[in-house]
Simulated assay, not measured.
Amino acid sequence: MYGVKGKKFRRQYKKSLSGFKDWKQKSHAEDWIIYPENCSHRLSLDEVALSEGELYTVLTSNTARGRKGSLVAMIKGTKSEEVTDRLLKISRKIRQKVKEITLDMAGSMKLIAEQCFPNAMQVIDRFHVQKLAAEAVQELRIQYRWEAIDLENEIIKQSRDKKVKPDIHIFENGDTRKQLLARSWYLLYKSREKWTENQSKRVKILFREYPDLEKIYHLSDSLRKIYNQNITKSVAMLKLAHWFKDVEESGFKSFSTLKNTIINHYNDILNYFEARSTNAAAESFNAKIKNFRLQLRGVKDRTFFLFRLIS
């Protein structure tokens, strides 16, 4: 429009207009970035893949809610020793003011939080717990789906040998067994109240054909409902105890593993019910990174990408 070539404009923007040349953290940005002034009383600790699967540990402020001023620190790698060494560059006075930090169940994240923010209450993000439960349900669905695929392949093979049309059973909603299991993946992530009319019909057939899927879905949904209720920490303890009993009686190995995982992080998981804090701010910032990376169709200059991201 103004007679300037795109490549030349990008070059001028990077070298002069953007302020990238004078960025104070430019020399070490690819390894770590720290903004102590963005530190608040409530923080989130998470990890994100920046480019080519390279993981970075990201510390964000919950009060900024993923907007400008969210980033407190972004450090290459997830090793607790390296991340702790960088975070300790933030003054002790600022770090001691942090009262709460949300994180996942990784041991390295817990160690980082303990060493860098000793006064902060650690809160295990509810969505990491619920994700494990949802994955256990999907694991059983996928197992049944492979069995259905094998069954259909065998029917087709036998029909081909006999030179007759394959007799593949079709349910009342028009799904074959293989399709029923494939098309049920999304609805098993949702609560019953959010199923559409067609999904309700499909799940009715699914649970009729696979009673174990109904039992395991009920366990996952029960855990979600505990989190969704506005209850105190003591009430949550009681409800989780009942849920543990249901898990033991069900006999599902995957949920027994989940139960043991919750027990190992019991206090930090229950801390959620103090103020119902989540890693939503960190996830919002991670989504911003992914969307920005998608707009640029990849990352060529990682340092400049980080500068653009936080500016």
Rank of each mutant, 00 (worst) to 15 (best):
D46H: 09
N279P: 01
A241K: 15
K288D: 10
D31R: 11
K79C: 10
E274W: 05
M1F: 10
I142E: 06
I34R: 05
I289D: 06
M105T: 11
R183D: 09
I310H: 04
Y272P: 05
G174F: 09
A106W: 10
S250E: 09
F292C: 05
N173I: 11
Y266I: 02
Y186Q: 14
W185F: 04
R183P: 00
P166H: 03
S44A: 12
K233S: 01
N230G: 05
H28M: 12
A73C: 02
K21F: 01
E147G: 02
Q12N: 13
L258Q: 05
S108G: 00
G19P: 03
L140S: 05
H128L: 09
A236K: 07
Q115M: 15
N286P: 06
I170V: 15
W32G: 02
N62V: 06
T303H: 05
R192E: 14
P211L: 04
V203Y: 03
F171H: 15
K225T: 14
R95Y: 08
S234I: 12
E274K: 08
G298M: 06
R293A: 05
G251M: 10
N271A: 11
K24L: 11
T84F: 01
R141D: 01
K68I: 13
L87D: 12
F273V: 10
Q179A: 10
L71F: 03
E209F: 01
G251I: 14
R302L: 07
G107Q: 14
S40I: 05
P118M: 07
W23L: 09
R10N: 12
I170S: 03
K68L: 05
